[in-house]
């Protein structure tokens, strides 16, 4: 359907991590600034942790986007679980070496020492809980040797707490915890995102009651909110095509929000 009011907002809430979609919210901005300050310090390892969907990956991508203009930064958003492959990729993309022989930790440290950048390169590891304990031990040794500065993200679960305890507890110099948004923060997030894309009419449809319902359904989780709003605008798009008289443009329909929540699995019906 051409000139649909809801197709653009729908696409805005697709669950993809793009630093350009980063929305500045007070609390998140504060976290991001802390993260940036920590990266500037001579620290060897920085831990970013929180529940899934709290914006860890987005912050990591934003950091990568901002720092890559100034220094050598490498982002691993999909973990490389094989140790040899991991070290080989690091050696190639950070230090420009692609040795034919098997890449051992000692060989990697030799290459790092030989290159010696004026500023320690930064490697950003997303979903670090997927790395094996043995690889994490090697990462720790590389950071101890000050060859690379690591910023890693972890899901906050009991299991991952154990990983953090075993490998990072004594070596983490900075740890930042991300939390779910409040209703107010979520409203700012949604409206800023819509206004940034010039979806003014749709942004005006969100009232406090709608936001309370959305927050109660998603518990302030950004990923769940994105999924819910994507389904919601898909529904609006459908009604716009099939039953436009049912749409009220002054507020979102609670019924349709709940239907979207049923569709995304936030409500078990």
């Amino acid at each position: 359907m051409e000139n649909s009011l809801f197709s653009k907002p729908r696409d805005l809430f697709l669950d993809v991590v793009n630093p350009r979609d980063y929305v500045q919210i007070d609390s998140v901005s504060h976290m991001y600034q802390s993260l940036k300050n920590s990266v500037q310090k001579p620290l060897k390892m920085i831990l970013l942790y929180g529940k899934p969907g709290t914006g860890k990956s987005m912050l990591l991508h934003k950091l990568h986007h901002d720092l890559s203009k100034q220094q050598k930064v490498l982002m691993f958003d999909i973990p490389i679980v094989d140790e040899d492959d991991f070290l080989r990729v690091l050696a190639q993309r950070i230090f420009g070496h692609s040795p034919r022989e098997i890449m051992t930790l000692i060989r990697f440290l030799e290459i790092a020492e030989a290159v010696a950048y004026p500023e320690v390169p930064i490697v950003l590891l997303d979903e670090a809980q997927l790395y094996s304990a043995s690889l994490m031990e090697k990462i720790r040794l590389i950071s101890d040797a000050r060859a690379i500065k690591f910023v890693i993200t972890l899901h906050k679960t009991d299991k991952e707490d154990i990983i953090a305890k075993e490998h990072f507890q004594t070596r983490i110099w900075e740890s930042i915890e991300l939390q779910n948004a409040t209703a107010e923060e979520l409203k700012v997030y949604v409206q800023k995102k819509l206004l940034k894309a010039n979806c003014f009419d749709v942004a005006n449809m969100f009232n406090d009651k709608n936001m309370k319902l959305i927050t109660s359904l998603t518990k302030g989780n950004y990923r769940d909110t994105n999924k819910l709003l994507f389904s919601l605008f898909t529904l609006y798009y459908w009604y716009e095509e099939n039953n436009p008289a049912a749409i009220k443009y002054n507020a979102l329909k609670s019924k349709w929000i709940e239907m979207a929540a049923i569709h995304t699995g936030l409500i078990h019906a």
């Binding site: 529904l235 459908w238 099939n242 709940e258 239907m259 569709h263 019906a269």
Partner: peptide, 18 residues
Amino acid sequence: MLDVRSLERRWIKYKIKA
């Protein structure tokens, strides 16, 4: 694409349950 009719039925069931 969403099956809106089915969603509406599920929503009615959900409201009755709630």
